[in-house]
Amino acid sequence: MQAALSGDELTVLLQRCAAGDRGAFERVYKSQSARLYGLALSITRQPSLASDAVQDALLQVWRNAARFNPERGNAESWLIGLVRYRALDIARKQVRETPSDVIPDKADDSPDALSQLMASGEGQALARCLDELPEERRRLIQAAFTQGLSHTELATRLNEPLGTIKSWIRRSLQALRKCLTA
């Protein structure tokens, strides 16, 4: 178990990766891999695909660490983005046959999750704004994000027309945007 790194420490490690420091890369891996793998697994739902997503993303970190610009976002977000987008690409190319509810480590979409989010400083505003959405819309947004479900997959799961789902998502995003920029 590695102690959590502060954002600043992670930033420094990424800068050292850009300079080719393998020790720094190993520390990034050890401190971040469980979170990143969990994220990829929740989206791809297959361990081998999750490994591929994390491997691709971390190789981008190693090769393109110099592209990370601390002024445009924090180090953690950069890593999360690399893994999420890679996992989403992989997931979209697969015909996903495993319904998410058989995945044991399914992300928490209960209201308790909101208090968890509240506890992380950066998530406070989001938790407050999510809480203002109607319950079913909040769950929709959380499931879409944490499981990487497409419009089409959401429509199938909720047995609603695609257009309805698209409209719900847009309205929810609009409401969130309004609340988050208020």
């Binding site: 891999s33 361990p47 999750a50 490994s51 968890q116 989010l117 992380s120």
Partner: peptide, 19 residues
């Protein structure tokens, strides 16, 4: 910046050692 905090809801899972 606003949505990524949602990743906190996803449980961490140790990757296989071969990764």
């Amino acid at each position: 910046q606003r949505l990524f905090p949602l990743t906190r809801l996803v449980p961490a899972v140790p990757p296989p050692a071969e990764l």
